[in-house]
Simulated scan of single mutants.
Amino acid sequence: MRSEETVRQRFGRLIASAARTTGRYDLDSHGGKAALARAAGLSESTMGRVLRGESIPDPRFFEPLAAAVDLDVRDLLVEAGIISPESLSTPSQTRASGVGSKTITLDEAANALGIHDPVAREMLAATVERLRRIQDAADESDGGGAAAHA
């Protein structure tokens, strides 16, 4: 067997260490492991394999598992070696994409979309303004969640 720690082993070690640090899970007892499994939404057998470094759970369980042990999911995934720190960069940080790299005006957007008719440009501006009001109302009513208002 290699002396180098595998990704599965590192993931399990990080989860076990964080679980112990929270003080909520006694991983030396069946009850503590079962409680951690419930908190993460995993079966007890899967949690056992994770803690032993034998497997990594399905990605849909990364967030609940990290939350159960008070870890930031991004930090867990980077520290375990599942993703690279560079993969967390936004497109504007990496310049890999133009998405989010620059704020544009309504006129620039209309030009980029090929909208030159003055009436169509006014309709675009009115639509954007209406969407901003809807978003503001949604933010005020539910603390930032999206709501469909017509």
Rank of each mutant, 00 (worst) to 15 (best):
residue 1 M to Q: 10
residue 2 R to D: 15
residue 2 R to M: 13
residue 3 S to D: 14
residue 5 E to S: 04
residue 6 T to G: 05
residue 7 V to W: 05
residue 8 R to P: 01
residue 8 R to Y: 08
residue 9 Q to P: 01
residue 11 F to M: 12
residue 12 G to N: 07
residue 13 R to F: 08
residue 13 R to W: 07
residue 14 L to Q: 05
residue 15 I to H: 00
residue 15 I to Y: 02
residue 16 A to W: 06
residue 16 A to P: 01
residue 17 S to N: 10
residue 17 S to Q: 11
residue 18 A to N: 05
residue 19 A to M: 07
residue 20 R to Y: 09
residue 21 T to P: 00
residue 22 T to W: 15
residue 22 T to F: 13
residue 24 R to D: 04
residue 25 Y to S: 00
residue 26 D to C: 01
residue 27 L to C: 05
residue 27 L to F: 11
residue 28 D to R: 14
residue 28 D to E: 14
residue 29 S to P: 02
residue 30 H to I: 11
residue 31 G to I: 09
residue 31 G to H: 10
residue 34 A to N: 05
residue 35 A to V: 00
residue 35 A to R: 08
residue 35 A to W: 01
residue 37 A to T: 01
residue 37 A to V: 05
residue 38 R to W: 02
residue 38 R to D: 06
residue 41 G to I: 06
residue 41 G to N: 09
residue 45 S to L: 07
residue 45 S to M: 04
residue 52 R to Y: 03
residue 53 G to S: 02
residue 53 G to V: 07
residue 53 G to N: 05
residue 54 E to F: 03
residue 54 E to K: 09
residue 57 P to M: 10
residue 60 R to S: 13
residue 61 F to S: 13
residue 63 E to I: 12
residue 63 E to Q: 13
residue 64 P to C: 14
residue 65 L to S: 04
residue 66 A to R: 03
residue 67 A to L: 15
residue 69 V to I: 09
residue 70 D to S: 11
residue 71 L to P: 00
residue 73 V to E: 10
residue 75 D to Q: 07
residue 77 L to E: 03
residue 77 L to Q: 08
residue 82 I to L: 15
residue 83 I to T: 14
residue 84 S to M: 10
residue 86 E to C: 04
residue 86 E to V: 06
residue 87 S to E: 14
residue 88 L to Y: 04
residue 88 L to M: 11
residue 89 S to Y: 12
residue 90 T to V: 06
residue 91 P to S: 14
residue 92 S to E: 13
residue 93 Q to C: 02
residue 94 T to H: 10
residue 95 R to N: 11
residue 96 A to G: 12
residue 99 V to S: 12
residue 100 G to V: 09
residue 100 G to K: 07
residue 101 S to K: 13
residue 101 S to T: 12
residue 104 I to F: 06
residue 104 I to Q: 08
residue 104 I to G: 08
residue 105 T to E: 04
residue 105 T to C: 09
residue 109 A to P: 03
residue 110 A to L: 03
residue 110 A to Q: 04
residue 111 N to D: 15
residue 112 A to Y: 12
residue 112 A to R: 14
residue 114 G to A: 09
residue 114 G to I: 11
residue 115 I to S: 01
residue 118 P to F: 04
residue 120 A to R: 14
residue 121 R to S: 02
residue 122 E to A: 14
residue 122 E to Y: 07
residue 122 E to W: 08
residue 123 M to K: 12
residue 125 A to R: 11
residue 126 A to Y: 05
residue 127 T to A: 13
residue 128 V to E: 04
residue 130 R to M: 10
residue 130 R to I: 12
residue 130 R to S: 15
residue 131 L to V: 07
residue 132 R to L: 06
residue 136 D to P: 00
residue 136 D to K: 10
residue 136 D to L: 07
residue 137 A to L: 14
residue 137 A to N: 11
residue 138 A to S: 15
residue 138 A to E: 09
residue 138 A to K: 03
residue 139 D to T: 07
residue 139 D to P: 00
residue 143 G to I: 03
residue 144 G to T: 09
residue 144 G to E: 06
residue 144 G to Y: 09
residue 146 A to D: 10
residue 147 A to Q: 13
residue 148 A to I: 15
residue 149 H to C: 10
residue 149 H to K: 15
residue 149 H to Y: 15
residue 150 A to K: 10
